[in-house]
Design a protein around this nucleic acid. Structure first.
Length: 384
DNA sequence: GATGCGTGGAG
DNA sequence: TCTCCAAGCAT
């Protein structure tokens, strides 16, 4: 596509720019989308689309929940595993919550998994049909402003203003919005509302997000390849990387604690379940001390939940959303029945437990390979 | 409106 | 190594 003539110049006011953008920008974006289609497991290809294939609302919903604050690459394998295990919403509703948590382990933001299961139960109870409106979807657990709009547009091809982090970045650059992001959301939404085309609202939403993910990236945006560069205020001013304007981030405090890996017979490990709410809610863990900001002598074997020949096995560090954790890992051989509130997980089941990544790190520090999936090639070998 | 909530990849 | 931050939601 040849560069358009430069009838509009840099002196264009924001109001004029806005008006111009609302007219044909969306169509140019759709044309770009059609020629840069990304083949993603939850997406209907243009060829299928032309044959009249509609997206499966279940798959769109599942992918959108997984994609919340999570990269496409991280989601792919989880999405495929979920679809294979639970092909439709009734299957997911029939699954035990514990099984869903296990399948979600490693993906993060675990309240999503619990809400996913609760949402599946509700949808299955109403006949397996997802609501096809934003307000209807918005009432379901784990579905907020973004996800309800995304499902409405993508799965049902209905008009909706889909605003995610990508869209916020694209819009704030198109209009050089200097208001910090948290306060600019309403303004951004108005711009998106005006841009949504009369047809193909779902493709438009995906096109905006694809543009943000592949061209209008947070750093080093590929403006030369952008189908909207002629409309972009930030390109004119030459500083697209300065948008969106974000408030300064808070510093992450350091917390410390100790983790205790108990080795039983035949490679079993002693585990327990975390409380349903809060950090890593409902997930499985090895016993640990409290994680505190204080650095004192408490992180020693004296803090072990039960007596044993505790030996230091190393330290693991893990970064959470709002703090960094350092865990001193201890290990010991423990015999007998599991103490109250704990259970023995046999060696061959450990890789399938609902263990968040930080817990896998701790276990690996004590028993290398213990959390890896057993493979025919790796011969059984006693540890220690 | 601010805060809590994971993880891993890119630069 | 370090910093940033990704297709947000619930409270």
């Amino acid at each position: 596509m040849a560069p358009a003539d430069q009838t509009r110049k840099a002196h264009t006011s924001k109001a004029q720019t806005s008006k111009a953008i609302s007219n044909d920008t969306a169509l140019r974006l759709l044309a770009w989308y059609d020629s840069h289609h990304r083949d993603l497991p939850w997406r209907v290809t243009p060829r299928e689309h032309a044959r009249g294939v509609r997206p499966d609302p279940y798959r769109i919903w599942l992918s959108e929940v997984m994609l919340q604050q999570t990269t496409v690459e991280a989601v792919k394998s989880y999405f495929l595993a979920f679809i294979e295990k639970w092909p439709d919403v009734e299957a997911l509703a029939a699954a035990p919550t514990e099984g869903v948590m296990k399948a979600w382990a490693g993906l993060g933001y675990y309240s999503r998994a619990r809400n996913l299961k609760a949402c599946a139960d509700l949808v299955a109870a109403r006949g397996g049909r997802f609501p096809d409106t934003e307000t209807g979807l918005r009432e379901l657990p784990g579905i907020g402003a973004y996800t309800s709009a995304a499902i409405t547009a993508i799965a049902f091809d209905r008009h909706a203003a889909v605003v995610d982090g990508n869209v916020e970045r694209v819009i704030s650059r198109l209009f050089s919005i200097t208001t910090p992001l948290s306060e600019a959301k309403a303004e951004i939404r108005v711009h998106v509302e005006r841009m949504v085309p009369a047809t193909r609202p779902g493709d438009f939403a995906q096109a905006m997000m694809d543009l943000g993910a592949t061209i209008c990236t947070p750093r080093r945006p590929r403006c030369m390849l952008c189908p909207l560069r002629e409309d972009c205020s930030a390109v004119v001013s030459g500083d697209p990387e300065n948008f969106p304007v974000r408030p300064p981030k808070a510093e992450k405090p350091l917390r410390r604690g100790a983790a205790f890996v108990s080795m039983g017979d035949d490679g079993a490990i002693l585990l327990r379940r975390r409380p349903e709410k809060g950090l890593l809610g409902g997930m499985t863990e090895v016993p640990t001390t409290a994680w505190t900001a204080r650095v004192d002598g408490a992180t020693t074997e004296a803090a072990a939940p039960f007596p044993g020949d505790w030996r230091r096995a190393g330290t693991v560090a893990h970064v959470f959303t709002h703090f960094t954790l350092e865990l001193e890992v201890f290990r010991a051989h423990i015999e007998g029945d599991a103490p109250a509130g704990h259970f023995w997980s046999p060696a061959h089941e450990i890789s399938g437990e609902a263990l968040p990544t930080v817990m896998k790190k701790a276990i690996e520090a004590a028993i290398p390979g213990a959390t890896k999936k057993p493979s025919p090639l790796s011969a059984k070998r006693p540890h220690d």
